[in-house]
């Protein structure tokens, strides 16, 4: 709807420019030209926002969505006591959550930048994917959390604690697990907790799995990077917040990583190969390659089910 309004504005300003040009003086012509340019910029911005879901509209913020398989997608707000961040999060509860008394394993799923958790819901159709994989028995019933990773959609934190900025790593590794354990019937042990993400979120999944092996047993990266690509403020983007550096210089933890990429997505392909080549026991790495598709939602839709299936096979199952 918003895009159609923006396109209508482009059409109207162009027509106005054409019709009124000869009747206007220089100032009027300039203002109308500016309006035409702004309408084009607005239309492009609206389309880009629809592609990345950076600023989701109120209508897109689904508070509760019921899946056809009996699952639920809840919208909650996580008050982060440790990080002092208060951010929204979507919570996927599989049908088995209502039908059994088992404590379920958990996956935190991170979005890209720019972006929001809505990208998982709308562009990657994650709820129907999870419903299908669980119903098919390829994945155990799992609670999946989709936290927002930054208080400002234009601020790229790469899920780190920025010096003088948002403490996102603390939010995602302390506050989100604490909130989930307090509100949902889930397993609390690290063997049942995994991470995943696409693009920048994939970097987050790998970095946080390697940094917090006491909290997470496995991580799945969909087109991820080996370094943060931002300035954290303490130089740690070159060391402790750099998975490639960690693998080269620190003892490798007993966790499992799934690294997926498209062969024509140059940087993630190169970085994922580097990470896979550096892996040593007890770190276990599985790779997955899509022939082409670049850095796009089509690739992540392709990787989504294999990544979740793999995660489930590497996490502890539901606990009676």
């Amino acid at each position: 709807m918003t895009l159609w309004l923006a396109l209508a504005a482009v059409l109207v300003t162009a027509a106005a420019l054409a019709v009124l040009w000869n009747r206007l003086r220089a100032l009027g012509r300039g203002l109308l030209s500016l309006a035409a340019v702004l309408s084009v910029v607005a239309a492009v911005g609206v389309e880009l926002n629809q592609l990345t879901e950076t600023f989701p509209s109120a209508a897109a913020a689904v508070p509760v969505a019921a899946g056809t398989g009996g699952s639920q997608m809840l919208a909650v707000t996580v008050p982060g006591e440790a990080s002092k961040l208060r951010l929204p999060m979507y919570v996927y509860l599989p049908a088995a959550y209502r039908l059994s008394a088992e404590r379920l394993p958990v996956v935190e799923a991170f979005h890209g930048v720019p972006g929001t958790p809505q990208f998982w819901l709308h562009k990657l159709n994650v709820q129907s994917t999870l419903d299908r994989e669980i119903a098919a028995g390829r994945m155990a019933p799992t609670v999946v959390l989709f936290p927002q990773q930054t208080p400002n959609p234009t601020l790229d934190t790469e899920c780190t604690n920025l010096r003088g900025g948002p403490q996102t790593e603390t939010f995602l590794t302390v506050d989100v697990p604490a909130y989930a354990k307090a509100h949902y019937r889930i397993r609390a042990d690290r063997a049942a907790w995994g991470l995943t993400g696409y693009s920048a979120g994939a970097f987050c999944a790998v970095n946080l799995t390697l940094k917090h092996p006491d909290k997470f047993a496995a991580g799945a990266s969909l087109s991820g990077y080996a370094s943060a690509g931002i300035t954290i403020g303490d130089g740690s983007e070159h060391t402790t917040n750099n998975p490639f550096w960690r693998l080269q210089h620190l003892p490798q933890p007993a966790v499992a990583l799934w690294l997926g990429w498209a062969a024509d997505d140059k940087q993630p392909a190169r970085d994922s190969r580097l990470l896979a080549a550096e892996a040593r026991a007890p770190l276990a790495v599985t790779t997955a390659v899509v022939a082409h598709g670049g850095h796009s939602s089509a690739v992540w839709r392709q990787m989504e089910a294999p990544a979740f299936d793999w995660l489930s096979a590497h996490l502890a199952g539901p606990l009676p």
Binding site: M139, A288, D309, W310, S312, A313, G317
Partner: peptide, 21 residues
């Protein structure tokens, strides 16, 4: 702990691996 074992699952969906590539 045996309660930390992975679940019994059907064969997963998979993609070609690095070796295959």
């Amino acid at each position: 702990p045996t309660d930390a074992l992975p679940p019994a699952l059907k064969a997963p969906q998979t993609l070609p691996s690095l070796r295959n590539t």
